[in-house]
């Protein structure tokens, strides 16, 4: 028996997302990094679609690829960062980065080793559709949802305060 279509698509998407994610880290030019990150987001959105979570996929693209990454690109273009202008990082910074990253990896591995992956039941397949998601968010999790919106509100107020300070 061969792989079915879904597995093939999943494999291709995963490979692309891994390559582009590595591209984000290894690229010297910040603009290429950002573009790789955008591609990574797209492949992740593809994964969402394969999980039948179309709403999440589209929101992922709108928010991350459409808004946040545009701002990233915006800042990079404004500051005119490019490969030649990349500052030399200090050596101890590299070691610190490697150690903390390694520590994180160990923690993740330890956590995942114990985790068992329950196979998806057909019933949970529709959770990503917008109607079900809305029901879940506004019925079961309405308090956390509203609390998080207050968090956003406070962040917005903070941004306005910082913006107004100069005058």
């Amino acid at each position: 028996m061969g792989m079915n279509l879904q597995q093939v698509v999943f494999g291709i998407l995963s490979i692309i997302s891994l390559i582009t994610a590595l591209g984000v880290v290894f690229s010297k030019s910040p603009v290429t990094s950002v573009l790789c990150l955008i591609l990574t987001f797209f492949t992740i959105a593809g994964h969402y679609v394969m999980l039948n979570a179309q709403f999440l996929a589209v929101v992922h693209i709108i928010v991350y690829a459409g808004a946040i990454m545009v701002l990233f690109l915006f800042v990079i273009m404004l500051m005119n960062l490019n490969a030649e202008g990349e500052p030399q990082k200090r050596n101890w910074l590299k070691y610190a980065g490697a150690i903390s990253g390694g520590a994180l990896l160990v923690v993740l591995l330890a956590a995942l080793r114990e985790a068992s992956l329950p196979s998806l039941t057909p019933a949970s397949n529709d959770i990503g559709l917008i109607a079900n998601l809305g029901q879940t968010l506004f019925k079961t999790y309405v308090v956390p949802f509203e609390v998080s919106s207050i968090l956003f509100l406070s962040a917005m107020v903070g941004a306005v305060v910082i913006g107004k300070k100069e005058h």
């Binding site: 603009v31 573009l35 955008i38 179309q54 709403f55 589209v58 929101v59 693209i61 709108i62 690829a65 459409g66 808004a67 545009v70 690109l73 915006f74 273009m77 559709l129 917008i130």
Partner: peptide, 25 residues
């Protein structure tokens, strides 16, 4: 006929700026 038609349009429109940004930069 996707059940998120409007959001899809929204997503695509928000990507439209990349062409202009990349071209300009």
């Amino acid at each position: 006929d996707v059940n998120i038609g409007i959001l899809y349009i929204f997503g695509v429109v928000s990507l439209g700026v990349y062409g202009i940004m990349l071209g300009g930069w």
